[in-house]
Write a protein that binds this DNA or RNA. Sequence first.
DNA 1: TATGTTATAAATATAATAATTTATAACATA
DNA 2: TATGTTATAAATTATTATATTTATAACATA
Lengths: 197, 197
Amino acid sequence: MPKTGLSSEEIKEKALQIAEEKIRAYSFEKFRLTDIAKELKISQAALYNHFPDKAALLDAISERWLAHMDNTLEHIANKEVPPRQLIVKWFLTYHQLKKEKVLKDPELYKSFNMAAELLKPFIIDHLDNLNRQLLMLVQKAIIAQEIHAKSPENVVQLLLESTISFHHPRMVLDHKDENREGLLKQVVETMLEGFHE
Amino acid sequence: MPKTGLSSEEIKEKALQIAEEKIRAYSFEKFRLTDIAKELKISQAALYNHFPDKAALLDAISERWLAHMDNTLEHIANKEVPPRQLIVKWFLTYHQLKKEKVLKDPELYKSFNMAAELLKPFIIDHLDNLNRQLLMLVQKAIIAQEIHAKSPENVVQLLLESTISFHHPRMVLDHKDENREGLLKQVVETMLEGFHE
DNA sequence: TATGTTATAAATATAATAATTTATAACATA
DNA sequence: TATGTTATAAATTATTATATTTATAACATA
């Protein structure tokens, strides 16, 4: 029986909450494991029973957010709406979620080393999810004859590539004070129109 | 009569050449005005007769390269080729020039603070040039009935936005080891197709 | 007057050291 | 045995002093 009266999962969850608070209050660079331990009323070393190291704790925060994002998008992807319209909606939501995150936690983004980030399993998993969802939408749109294309995979790649400034963290940060939803809508619709015939 | 036997313009030009060498040999962060002065055989303080400060010297390097880029693109924009085809060619060249620069001088890019960079007059000038050239091409394409659009300005904006990952320095750096010209071609052609009807 | 000099003040970078934080080890207890 | 403790080694970060670099000033000369 644990001495805090909490399960490992509960401790983990609380640790992540506190970490997010600290990062928001101070900054990404300055938050300390000792602060988390203090607030949890356990020793700093005891955190290592729940997380292999500090990086793993930080990754867990990102992972949690990405899971939330995947779910929200999945929910949209499964709506009963004409697929082409849904693709536009999906991209707009994707953009909004990223922007929301950047606005809320700019510290979380600034220091991202994208090259290293892309190798992490939970990021790969997230990107897979996005690809899978969008592929499904594109396939539906092809079946519904709303767009025409030999390779739905290629359509997915082109759509994601041409909208990168609306979902790539760095680019989203650059434009955080602008409303670019109208522009995104136009880009996606023009691309879809390009696949029309 | 100057004591070096060189005009201010000649000193400036030599200073820029030496600065580029030094940046390439060492790095952006490490190059010193003293090194340039030493090689020019003048005192370090004398450089201030030609450049207001160190930042101005660095800006002059960028400015020179951007001018070269603008000229190359201008030359392409004026070719006698069907405009829609020319737009694709123009984007491919733009991408190649940026990539070339990033591959040659990665140090010049890493430290770029984009927000500050975009306020500099010579950057504004460069972006104006790009917009002007592309606008001309789009207008020609509309006249030739190769694309249909009410607002050529809007077409220009959408084309530049959807291809940003092929010319934004940070994104180009991220993909520097990939050949992405086929992908760029597809994006531009799909967008143009989207404006077709 | 434009371009150069030397001297020096102000700002930055570097290096050595101290302090803090992260991570591991050895052990305790429900 | 899972989760906790304290002690401490290893790594990182802050601090401070020193050296270097950038920028300005006062002045020289073609």
